[in-house]
Nucleic acid binder design. Structure first.
Lengths: 233, 233
DNA sequence: GCTTATCAACTTGTCCGATAAGATCAGGTT
DNA sequence: AACCTGATCTTATCGGACAAGTTGATAAGC
């Protein structure tokens, strides 16, 4: 059976990302298109597309006539699933903590706004998700998917494409956390209680309570992340 | 004198973006690579790169063997400067309002966190920016740049790459608002007072006051946006 | 000596033509 | 009806070529 591989440009790009993230290009110059062709045995079209991917991640700068320049690490697009997938595990673990920190900053505020804009239909969808989660309490993977969908549905209630985009871009934490952590499902019943409190606050259209419940919920996850760190380190 | 044009793929992509955003492809199918080659008189390489750009904006789905599929509009990457630049003005105006709404949701929370993590060096940089703004009170363009830098410096104080990325991605509002609005500089002194209040709260490391001051500041800008809408409409 | 002009070498941008591989659909077979 | 099959569409990859921009060394002029 033939193994289904990713497109060549992505394969090349992933190697380059790891190389750059690993600090193997200290002079700030990435290999030229022809050098990539030779090293990886691919055509220039593939090499070009790979570099375009790096460019879209804000990892390199491309300009006609000049060699490809590596950009400073603090301006890379850490919201991109591709970048997160290709970064070394330690760096992803660090990022995951920062994303979680960011969610603690953002999501209570989102929940507060959602409490003001949520429709009855949206509320019904949240109720359905709650039911589905309790039904899959013994299936952590599926539960996590529903969990994410619950949070995104709340964000969608704000009817704001910018807020929506932030949550959408944060999908990568799902696969990333699965890749990194062996988080036990011991806390799922507790999470369900928190989701219920968030739902109740939203149903009451109470911004303050919604924000507080959301913050409390995310704080629980923080404890789990820390527990993972102890297990891993 | 030769006019400096953008690369061909971007030119083609911009036309396709406008076409898709204008609803000219109701069947959800974008033109194939060859069709683009014929219509625009470019090579397949250019057509491919143009489609890759659309793909990076989450506007289309590319898969081998299948025709290019147009994705639903609510999943496009509205944080991308390219997309915003190419969208028709009315849609950008709508987006600008949503971005502002998002900033009102996010930035007070960011300011609150920054109040806890801000270093003395960061505080000094904010002070410098305040001075620079008062110095350029009569130069609205420069003032707006410094304004943006002030907000980004606050975000940078959280030392969180995800939060940082959100603010960084929001740079496009600067050029977009300049493109759309003839906002008079009449409110700059008022904005300066608000910046001062934010700075004082941060200097006091008071999260609550920082958040409140930030919210108040952004509310002022809201009034200006509304004023623009009256002028335009 | 210093500046400036020029050119060679290198880079990315664009073009063309060809083949490989996946998807789709209409016919035909069972 | 279900299953094969092949023609025909699509995108993916290849190879070579030339255009256009950048860089740096060299040579000309002051």
């Amino acid at each position: 059976m033939q193994v289904k591989l990713r497109p060549l440009p992505q394969q090349v790009a992933s190697v380059l990302v790891r190389r750059i993230a690993g600090g193997e290009l200290p002079d700030g110059l990435a290999p030229s298109e022809v050098q990539i062709c030779i090293e990886f045995g691919v055509s220039r079209a593939v090499a070009r597309e790979a570099l375009k991917i790096l460019s879209a991640l804000d990892m390199v700068e491309i300009a006609q006539g000049r060699r490809i320049n590596v950009r400073p690490a603090d301006e890379w697009d850490y919201m991109s699933p591709l970048l997160v997938e290709w970064l070394p595990s330690p760096q992803v673990h660090e990022l995951l903590k920062e994303l979680h920190e960011a969610r603690i900053v953002f999501e209570p505020a989102i929940a507060a706004k959602a409490a003001q804009t949520l429709t009855d239909a949206g509320l019904a969808r949240l109720a359905d998700l709650l039911d589905a989660m309790t039904a899959h309490i013994d299936d952590p993977d599926r539960y996590l998917e529903l969990d994410l969908e619950f949070h995104m549905e709340i964000c969608r209630a704000t009817r704001n494409r910018i807020l929506d985009r932030f949550m959408y871009s944060s999908r990568w934490w799902q696969s990333a956390s699965r890749r990194l952590s062996n988080r036990a499902p011991r806390a799922l019943p507790e999470a369900t209680r928190h989701h219920r409190k968030i739902y109740d606050a939203l149903a009451a259209r109470d911004p303050q309570r919604a924000a507080a419940a959301m913050r409390e919920h995310l704080m629980l996850n923080t404890l789990l992340l820390m527990a993972d760190e102890v297990e891993v380190g």
